[in-house]
């Protein structure tokens, strides 16, 4: 197998995973106006969960890595567990962070959650093997078929894309449904939305948990491919790659999300691998983050609604509706 096949497949897999994340974040931020600055935590929850239910029982302190919940779940329970982990962590965090609170406080609280979760998981070794993280994660579905994820990257890429496509369709449908419209109302004016009978708290929690489940799923898909997961993979800044992607593409616009997810993570984070090594090892990584930060700021400055803005849902007057002439008149005052 050529290096190129491997490389392209890997890019496609990353694209699928980032697309899932982008959809989830777009539902939360673009539609519901929930600013989830801790998004990566939910992806990490899914990744850790998928890892520990694939790795089998933990060998404890004696083994080279220790973790909780060690077991060996068959496909598709591994991915279900990942999604459930994302959803449950979202529910718990959402219950206290999504209360009626200033939006900037809410965002700050979620950012803080992200920073602190990272510290805790790094420091508490028995949980998920601390800062060394977990390795040796395999692909349960691949075992059934008889391949490994890295051995058959094309298959894994197709599998990732299939899942991303299904989730994309579901979320697309949901967000164009009356429920999605209610989310937008909440985003535009919370007080008015609740004065029009919408239960803000529950809408926000719903969108938070749905997004969390998708994030968890994306984490599960990622870890079963790369085989390892550690605090290095989910620094708070990772959230902002996805945010930048939907900023660049277009907030609230799905085509925009696809464009953004293609552009930002792939171009900014993957293409530089082709660059000749300059400076000390790690310099390019740091500079990528600087670029993400700059792209983020430039987007806010020049194109706050992205390259492709939200689409207007136009309606025309149906024929069945009576025009002014046929209004039944019963005489007024």
């Amino acid at each position: 197998m050529s290096v190129w096949v491997f490389y392209i497949s890997t890019l496609v897999i990353y694209f699928g995973v980032d697309l899932l994340a982008g959809i989830a974040l777009n539902l939360q931020f673009g539609y519901a106006g929930v600013v989830n600055f801790g998004f990566i935590v939910f992806q990490a929850a899914g990744a850790y969960m998928a890892a520990v239910v694939v790795l089998g029982p933990s060998g404890g302190v004696a083994s080279f890595q220790q973790y909780i919940f060690g077991s060996r779940l068959p496909f598709p329970l591994d991915l279900v567990a990942a999604a459930v982990a994302g959803a449950v962590v979202s529910l718990v965090i959402g219950l206290f962070s999504l209360r009626r609170m200033r939006r900037d406080y809410q965002a700050a609280v979620l950012l803080i959650v992200s920073l602190i979760a990272l510290q805790v998981v790094s420091a508490d070794v028995p949980l998920f093997n601390g800062s060394n993280g977990l390795t040796g994660v395999t692909w349960p579905l691949g075992q059934i078929v008889g391949v490994t994820a890295t051995g058959a990257p094309v298959i894994y890429a197709a599998w990732t894309l299939a899942i991303a496509a299904i989730v994309f369709a579901a979320v697309y449908w949901l967000s164009k449904s009356p429920w999605g419209r209610s989310l937008r109302a909440m985003r535009d004016h919370e007080d008015a939305a609740s004065a029009m009978g919408l239960n803000i708290t529950s809408l926000r929690l719903q969108v938070f948990v749905i997004g969390g489940a998708i994030a968890g799923l994306s984490g599960g898909l990622l870890v079963e491919y790369i085989g390892a997961w550690s605090p290095g993979a989910w620094g708070y800044a990772e959230t902002f790659v996805i945010f930048t992607a939907i900023f660049v593409g277009g907030v609230g616009n799905y085509r925009g999300v696809i464009v953004g997810v293609l552009l930002v993570p792939v171009i900014f984070l993957e293409l530089p691998r082709f660059l000749p090594a300059v400076g000390y090892p790690g310099l390019i990584d740091s500079l990528q983050w600087v670029t993400i930060g700059l792209a983020w700021m430039l987007c806010l400055l020049f194109r706050p609604r992205g390259i492709l803005p939200e689409k207007r849902m136009e309606v025309t007057k149906p024929a069945g509706v009576p025009g002014p002439a046929v209004v039944p008149s019963e005489g007024g005052a």
Binding site: S177, P178, W179, G180, R181, S182, R184, A185, R187, D188, H189, A192, A193, M196, G197, L198, G252, E310, R312, M313, E314, V315
Partner: peptide, 19 residues
């Protein structure tokens, strides 16, 4: 609702809004 059309403003607010 600033980023919704007038029509959407109305149908989202209805007593029977399924959303």
């Amino acid at each position: 609702f600033a980023k919704m059309t007038v029509f959407e403003n109305l149908i989202t607010s209805g007593e029977g809004n399924a959303g």
